[in-house]
């Protein structure tokens, strides 16, 4: 049998050296910091960071999260909508955050 290397968690942790986001993501999908998964957190942070009054559109979200499958992003957006963290604005492709901290 093959020896497993010690990091046998389901998903390799992704390091983002380019991202100046202060909120630290523990690379684990199953380790929520505030009840959200890493994907959901990243989506929420991007939406929060958008200064435009109509919010961030889904295309931008995809462009900024290119390492993620579109389905995951969509899922995260749906979840955040359901929870009330974000809402759609001018159309179903633009989102703003409700968390105004």
């Amino acid at each position: 049998s093959k020896p497993n290397n010690q990091l046998s968690a389901g998903r390799p942790s992704i390091s983002n050296p380019g991202m100046g986001e202060p909120g630290n993501f523990s690379g684990n999908n199953f380790m929520p910091a505030n009840g959200l998964t890493m994907v959901q957190n990243q989506v929420l942070n991007l939406i929060k960071a958008c200064p435009r009054p109509e919010g961030l559109n889904f295309q931008d979200l995809r462009n900024q999260l290119q390492h993620m499958p579109v389905a995951s992003i969509k899922q995260a957006v749906d979840f955040l909508c359901n929870e009330g963290h974000i809402y759609s604005t001018v159309d179903d492709d633009h989102f703003k955050s409700t968390d105004a901290e």
């Binding site: 909508c81 359901n82 929870e83 009330g84 963290h85 974000i86 809402y87 759609s88 604005t89 001018v90 703003k96 409700t98 968390d99």
Partner: peptide, 20 residues
């Protein structure tokens, strides 16, 4: 734009409901 207001209100309600 009424839609935006309504969506926002609905979202805030959901969020509030979660935080109770």
């Amino acid at each position: 734009l009424v839609r935006i207001q309504r969506n926002k209100a609905a979202a805030l309600l959901r969020l509030a409901a979660r935080n109770v």
